[in-house]
Every structure is written in C-alpha cells, then in structure tokens.
Design a protein around this nucleic acid. Structure first.
Length: 910
RNA sequence: GGACUCUUAGCUCAGUUGGUUAGAGCACUUCCUUGACAUGGAAGGGGUCACAGGUUCGAGUCCUGUAGAGUCCA
C-alpha cells in the first residue's frame, strides 16, 4: 500500500482516475437484466459554450445522482451531448468571419454552413472536455449532437408527421422580429425589460375642421407614416360626433386617415384616442383586420426606415428615425408635448436589442398533447422539485399559444418543405399548403428536385431539443433504439435543469414524449422523465446574475486548479439549497477543499495507526470488530454512522443535496475527526483495544467514502484504493453501498448490538471534557497539558469517568482527574458526571470566580423560572403531549440540581 | 395588473408535519506549531428570527395584513 502524503494534491489524482475510468468505459450505460435502470439525459449545453459555474452546479448534481445510482447497484446511464443552438452559434461564427471581413451573405448558404461545421469540429467539444475535468461520469461513447444525421432525421420526421396531422401550418402573422439576427423569435425568446424613453403627444388635424385636432400619445413617432387610422372607444362621448371624420397624418407621405371606433381602445389612456399602425403593433394589427385597414410597413427587416416612411426618414435606423421624427413633428407644430415615460419593451434574448412586431410568413405549431401534459404533472407521474414549479408550468399550459417554429437562419434543421417551381409563396392558401402538386413535405424531398424549391427557413433550436429524451436513444430507428436500450432507459429517471427553461424545454419535452413514445400506452410509460429537479440560479456576491458582459462569472477551471474538482463540487453542492437562488461565495469552495484535506488526513492517520486488516468487504471488516471490547465511543460513532447513512439516503430521495453534503461534513469532521479519532489516540496505545479501534476506523472510513463518493469522486476513489477497501483493479463504484438498515443487519449478524446507554454516556463525557477545557481557558492555562482536576461525584458516575479516564485526560488536556470527597476554593464547573474542579497551584482570584459563578446561578434561575411557569400552567399540562411535559419536568430537575450545586460552590468561596 | 419566492449572527445561508437555552460556514477576539491535518486544534463574542395583528398551552415555523428585495407571466 502506497503511503499517503501529508496534504491532498488534487491535480494528479484527478487526471489519473479520469483516465482510468475512461479507459475501462466505467460509465457505460448497459441494459442488465434484473438491474433497475436509472437514467439521465444531460441538458445539452450550447455547442459554442464554455463551462460556467451554473454548469458546475447542474452537472455536479446529475453526477451525484448517477454515481449514487451505480453504488446502489442500478443500471445507470447518463447521456451527454451538445445543442447546435441556432442563433447563438450562427452569431458566433458570423462574428469570427467578420474579423476576416467576410459576410455571411457573400459566402452563400453552403459555404457558410461549411464554416460553421468546421468551427464546430474545432471548438465544439470544449465544454464536454471541461465536464470531464469536473468528473462528470457521462457515457461518452453515446455523445449526442442535435445536428447529427440520425438526430436530424428524428427532428424532420416529427415535422413531417405533425404537418400531416395538421398541427403545423404556415401563416402570415405578427411575430417577434429581431432586427439584428434578422429572424423571427418565439414569445419565449423575448425578454421584457423596463426602459425609460419619451412619450410624445401628437396632434392630428381634422380635415373638415381646420384648426381642430385630435391628440394621441405615442412612444414611437417614427411609425406615424404607417398610421392608417385613429381609433377611439365607441362609447367615448368626447369623440362621438367626430366618428367617420378624417384626420391628416402629420408625418410621412400625405394622407387622410379615418377616425374609427373599436372596443379595444382604453378610454383611460391619454386622451382616449389611439393611432393605429397595423404593421408595427400586435394590437393595432388586430384592429386593422377588424376594420379592413391597409397595412403600411415602414420598416425594413434590419430595423431601418424604408421609403414608405417618406424621404426625410428613409434609410435611418429606427432609433435615429425616432429622434428625427420628433424634430420634424416639433417643427410642424404637431408635437405638442414630450414627457419622460417608463414602460416595458421586448428585447431579443440573444441579440439584446428591442424586437419589432413584424408581419411575416412563418411556420407555426399547435402543440400536441397539451391536456395530457397537464395531467401527467397533476397526477404526479412527473414530479417537480421543488413542487411549486408545477404551478408555473400549468399556468403556461393553460394559456398556451401556438409556437413559431421557423427561423430565418441558415444554421439549423432546414424545414423539409418544397414549393413547386414558380409558385408565389406569399400567396399560398391553407388549401394550397395541403395540395401535393404545389407543396411537397417529406423527409427525403421530392423525386424530381429540379421542379421544386426548398424552404429557406430552419427550425427553432428548441424544435430539436424537445425530442432530446428519446432522439438521444435512437428514435425513430428501431434497430438504433434497441441498441441504445430505449426500452429500458425510457422514461428517464430525473431531469436536472434550471427553472428558466421550464417553457422552452421542460414543457415541450413532456408534450413530445407523450406524442411519440409508446403510443397507446399509459401516461407514466410515455412521459420523458419522472422527476424534474430545478436548481437555483447562481448569482454573484451582489446578487446579480452571472454574465459574460459583467465579467462576474468565475472560471470553473481556475477554481478547479485552485481547490480541486472535488473541492469545487463539494463547495457548490453545500452552497445550493433546494430551489433557491444561490449567491456564489468562493470561501465555500475553499471550505470544500479543506474538507477534502481533512478526509485525506483522517485516512492518513488510519494508515499510520496500524497495519491494514482485511478491508476488502464490509463483512470482513465487521468480522474484525470485537463487541466485547466496545467502549461507549465505539457505540456512539457507529450509531452516528448509521444515522448519517440514513440521513444521506433521505436527502437523495428528497432531492436535498446540500443537506446531504452538510450531514456528511458534520458527521465526519465533528463526530469522527474531532472526537473519535482523538479518543482513538488513547485506545491505540492499548494492545487490548487497538485492533478493534482500527476495525471501527476502517468501517467508518469505508462507509464514509461510499457516501461521499457521489459528491467528491476523485479523492474517494484514490483513498478507497490506497486503503484497500476494494479488490485491486476495481473501482469504488463496483461496490454496492450498504444502506443504514443493511449496515445494521450486517453488524447484528456478527453479534453487534448498539447500546443506547453507552451512546448517551458519550454526550456526558464530551460535556465533561468541554467543561474542563472551558475552566482551563478561563484561567489562562488552555494550552497546558499538565493540569490536574478534582471531581466530586457519585460512585456510578465515577465508574463511567474512570472507565474512560485515559481518553478523558487526552480530550481535556489534563494530567490527572482525581476523585475527592470535598474540594474548597477551586474554580469549578457543574457537569452531568459530577462537579469538576480545576486544581490551581496559583491563587485563585476569588472575586472573579464569584462573579463567574454568580452569572451561572442567575442564568439558571431565569431558566428555572421559565420552566416552572410552563409546568404550572394548567393549560400546558392539560393539552401538551405527555412526552413534552415529561421533558420539561426532567429539564426542571436538572436545572434545579445544577442551580443548587452552583449556589453551594458560591457559598464555599465565602 | 396577476403568480411565486425571499427577509434569521458582520456576510452568505440552514432551520423537514409548531415543543428544552435558534444552528452552520466564513469573518472577528484570545490561545496553541501536542506524534492525521496550521487546508489544523481549543475557547469565546455576536441574533427583540423585517414589522403589526391573529390562531395556540406553546410560533422563526401556521393564518392575515404592511414594508422592502427578487423572479416569472401579462
């Protein structure tokens, strides 16, 4: 066995074990008869992405679940992969090309796509490589990419199928248009942001009443050339007599536009009159439709004003145009007022510029299986953790809108629709769309491609990732599905993701799964996952979101270099309570590293303490235990081990990961290292108790490594190997973790019964040692180890003390503890095992000592008064449960005894 | 405007069906290089649990309202 070094050096250990795991294909998800499956599909990071601290949290949690599943003997599968991320990737590559002064449109579609693929081959694997550095135990042989040929086939088949079913249609509608990316966006890709701008009051002169005006308020004067009407509420008496009149458009090409009535107008807003610009506002568009108004689109696709806006504005960017329009209106006297105005403006999520409502032809999807998607969550087939997100999910489904699935991009799945050569796409009716002589929709394209023109648009990225849980398992190819084990691994067990993509991804995956998996079978067989764990969002110390532009996101690779992957993992997990946003604190990561070092050194102590026994199995270690030589500490540490195993088990079951980390931290550091290892130092001196003590250490360390392994895989694998807990050449995950009851029954089989009385006595011993140390500290001899103590106590308690004397001396840092009938004038503390006196050779400051004792007496008197008041309250004794009342009585007795003892001590000082 | 979350020690946060004297990590003070670990050990200071009501024998915990912070949806 190699000797364990003084400090844990993570770098080489991580490198060594990850290489060994990969070489052995240790993470391969295999279908094994009789083994329960446990599967996860990774939320595919953008292929352009680099690892962020958010990924660290998300993937550490998935890795914990998968590794724990392996330890529990399940057949575990974690499928990794990346998302082609249409807009994001296209933008990145375009930006790269721009550095070489190359523009996308100059290259042309095919050449540009070649560049994107080249970029993807060069840089697209970075994030997956980074996940390996984190220790992610994905089945890398199954790595998926949403633009892989088989995946594309799945995406396009779904389009063809949903088109055939009538769920997909083409429509000219108002969409969210991004003037930078030059594509439509779905509602989910638009972020509302509060913006402070100007509200302009504009007057429109009535044609038949020169000098008389109708006033409207608008934030967008540059769209006035697109105005086709002024609308008021039909019951608005202010305008009743003017209905049907015409006003002059104050900007752009001269025109007279009607004053119309529509119930959509809010009488309370401004003057109650609204300008109607159907091309540039969704509500206006609808008003225009109802009144058969023309549509004047004054904006080009890139957000500049076009010739319809008039010569003064044409060619200007929309924001410059707004300024110019205001100036022109001011000059003409139409602008009567301008005020500062705050409102919400929709921004493009990717390009971060205001979107434009724009009337375009797009492909739309009526979602399938909406009702079943609600039912699956309501009935608990899919459980959300924390549960409250199900409300958000259901609310979205209740108000679901058709999904704009086409994007005017090149990078993505090109829509498998071909139009007959020469057909005017702008004029296609719904009937034309279903006419195979005019429009062809299929996976393979028409047999006579020369007569057809393929649709230019590609599909929204989410229209591929919504198939992720089954398209990654070979669907729709039967042979591939069999090979991937879809029958075994679908539905997946748990999805770990952020609540920010609950609509983008989670809800859509559920609907896709219900539509395509195992048609005709029950809901629970068709859903894509059983549990969804929503992580919190990681913020910086000021509570801001991590973002590239703020530069407030620490680089996980730097953190790994500094604290080790395990330190980072432990830190981030212990930082992340269920479902709350997290403020990132580097000191918690540091404490993760420190914990690893503590673990390392405890194992080092074990190794230095004595030869390794047969550690290869739990049973061989348990067989080395000698219950006849057990002392109270042995009972107590095994009791705590069982309790901690139980707690960790519960935490995994209830998705309380930080609680699991904290339970293990507390157990290992406080119970094992601070107490058991310290008392071991005395026990290891005695030939009688040494072997048993070493066996207990082995048992605790072995189980702790198993419990910790999912969180900190590298160091536990290394220590497991160094201490010989597994057969040579095997990995820790080839061992089955014993749960608490199994551990207990194994112990029982070897004649080991934990003694509650002994366990309780350890608490008294700990308190005794604590009181001794406090006395020393208060009398400035904390660091001396040659102090003597006296104790006045009962025979029974003295029996406990003397049985544990050598350990107590070590823990208290004392040379002797001697029993006396009576001690006078020495500093004293009252413990559950008797009154403890510090034997000070020097004179005691009687005055200070009296002050100290008086404080104790006063505090106890307060507590006694409180407890007595409670017990004398008839309502309490009548209604509180007996156990609580009994507890209060016991507490009172203890307080009174202690109080009496302190009073006696006080008197003895005179 | 609607929904949800949060407000506990200087900081960041736990606190699981209401039940002894409210905890952790970090920071802080004092002491200790004792043969696993100074990435460590020992002791300590620090909280009217946002506020106001209510339910209850008993409220950090349940209910109502108020204030502030945040997220999502319109």
């Amino acid at each position: 066995m190699a000797e364990i070094s003084k400090g844990y050096e993570s770098r080489d250990v991580e490198k060594k074990w990850y290489a060994a795991w990969q070489a052995a294909h240790a993470f391969a998800g295999k279908v094994t008869p009789g083994k329960e499956p446990y599967s996860i599909v990774i939320p595919p990071p953008n292929v352009t992405g680099v690892l962020t601290i958010g990924h660290v949290l998300n993937n550490t949690l998935q890795d914990m679940l998968i590794r724990r599943a392996r330890l529990e003997g399940k057949s575990a599968l974690w499928i990794p992969g990346t998302d082609h991320a249409g807009i994001a990737t296209q933008t990145v590559v375009e930006r790269e090309l721009r550095k070489e002064k190359i523009r996308r449109r100059d290259l042309g579609r095919e050449k540009f796509l070649e560049k994107v693929w080249a970029w993807r081959h060069e840089k697209g694997g970075i994030i997956l490589e980074q996940l390996r550095r984190l220790g992610a135990s994905c089945d890398w042989d199954r790595t998926q990419f949403t633009m892989d040929p088989h995946y594309s086939k799945a995406v396009l088949s779904v389009f063809v199928d949903l088109f055939a079913k009538g769920n997909i249609y083409r429509g000219k509608r108002m969409v969210n248009w991004c003037p930078v990316s030059l594509t439509a966006l779905s509602d989910e890709e638009v972020i509302m942001k509060p913006v402070t701008g100007s509200m302009y009051h504009i007057r429109y002169e009535l044609v038949n009443f020169p000098g008389r005006y109708v006033e409207v308020k608008t934030t967008r004067p540059e769209t006035i050339p697109g105005d086709v009407a002024i609308a008021v509420h039909p019951q608005d008496s202010r305008y009743a007599e003017l209905l049907g009149q015409k006003v002059r458009r104050p900007l752009g090409p001269t025109a007279e536009i009607p004053l119309i009535a529509d119930t959509a107008v809010d009488r309370e807003f401004g003057t109650g009159a609204l300008k109607i610009t159907p091309a540039h506002d969704k509500a206006d568009f609808e008003v225009g439709q109802r009144h058969h108004l023309p549509i004047i689109d004054v904006l080009s696709a890139d957000g500049t004003l076009n010739e319809l806006a008039g010569p003064e504005l044409a060619g200007l960017d929309r924001f410059a145009g707004r300024k110019k329009a205001a100036e022109l209106l001011k000059a003409s006297g139409a602008l009567v007022a301008e005020e500062v105005y705050a409102n919400n403006v929709g921004y493009s999520e990717r390009a971060d510029v205001p979107i434009e409502p724009r009337l375009t032809w797009q492909w739309w999807l009526r979602y399938p299986r909406v009702e079943e998607a609600k039912a699956a969550v309501r009935a608990g087939h899919i459980q959300f953790h924390p549960e409250r997100w199900s409300k958000v999910y259901l609310h979205w489904l209740e108000n679901i809108q058709d999904w704009c699935i086409s994007r005017q991009l090149w990078w993505g799945h090109r829509i498998p629709v071909w139009y007959r050569q020469g057909l005017d796409k702008e004029k296609l009716t719904e009937a034309d769309l279903r006419d195979p002589t005019k429009v062809h929709v299929s996976l393979d394209g028409p047999a006579d491609p020369e007569n057809w023109v393929q649709e230019d648009d590609v599909l929204d990225t989410w229209a591929s990732s919504w198939l992720w849980p089954f398209a990654t398992m070979g669907w729709p190819d039967e042979a591939a599905m069999k090979q991937a084990g879809l029958d075994c691994f679908y539905p997946t067990t748990t999805l770990v993701t952020g609540p920010d993509i609950i609509f983008f991804w989670v809800a859509r995956m559920i609907m896709a799964g219900l539509e395509y998996m195992r048609p005709g079978e029950s809901l629970d067989r068709r859903i894509p996952f059983k549990h969804v764990y929503f992580t919190g969002i990681i913020r910086d110390a000021q509570g801001r979101k991590m973002s590239k532009s703020l530069g407030n996101s620490p680089d996980p690779l730097d953190l790994i270099a500094k604290y080790g992957a395990d330190g980072l993992r432990f830190g981030i997990v212990s930082l992340a309570p269920q479902g709350q946003d997290i403020r990132f604190q580097e000191d918690r990561i540091e404490s993760g590293k420190n914990f690893c070092n503590k673990l390392w050194n405890a194992c080092r102590f074990r190794q230095m303490s004595g030869p390794a026994g047969d550690n290869s199995k739990l049973t061989t270690i348990v067989a080395r235990l000698d219950p006849a030589r057990f002392d109270a500490d042995d009972h107590a540490i095994l009791d705590r081990l069982l309790a901690t195993s139980r707690e960790v088990n519960r935490c995994f079951y209830e998705f309380e990961f930080s609680a699991a980390a904290q339970a293990l931290y507390g157990f290992f550091w406080n119970d094992f290292c601070d107490w058991y290892v310290e008392v071991s130092k005395a026990k290891l001196q005695e030939p009688d108790t040494k072997a048993n003590c070493l066996a207990i250490q082995d048992l605790v360390l072995r189980q702790t490594l198993l419990l910790l392994h999912p969180i900190i895989p590298f160091i536990t694998e290394e220590l497991w190997s160094l201490l010989g807990y597994g057969a040579p050449g095997t990995f820790i995950e080839e061992t089955r973790i014993e749960n608490a009851s199994h551990l207990a029954s194994t112990s029982l089989a070897h004649g080991l019964v934990l003694d509650p009385a002994a366990i309780a006595s350890v608490e008294r011993l700990k308190n005794f040692a604590l009181q001794a140390r406090v006395l020393k500290a208060e009398h400035n001899v904390a660091s001396r180890r040659d102090t003597s103590f006296f104790v006045t106590t009962t025979d029974a308690d003295w029996a406990v003390l003397s049985a544990n004397l050598s350990k107590l001396l070590r823990m208290a840092g004392a040379a002797t503890v001697v029993r006396r009938e009576q001690v006078d004038g020495a500093p004293a503390a009252v413990t559950q095992l008797g009154t403890l006196y510090l034997d000070l050779a020097s004179t005691v400051d009687v005055g200070a000592e009296k002050v100290r004792l008086q404080k104790e007496v006063d505090a106890l008197a307060r507590h006694i008064a409180g407890t007595e008041a409670r017990l004398s309250n008839k309502a309490f004794t009548d209604k509180a449960p007996p156990a609580v009342i009994e507890g209060a009585r016991k507490q009172l007795a203890e307080q009174q005894a202690k109080h009496a003892e302190f009073e006696r001590l006080l008197k003895s000082l005179g």
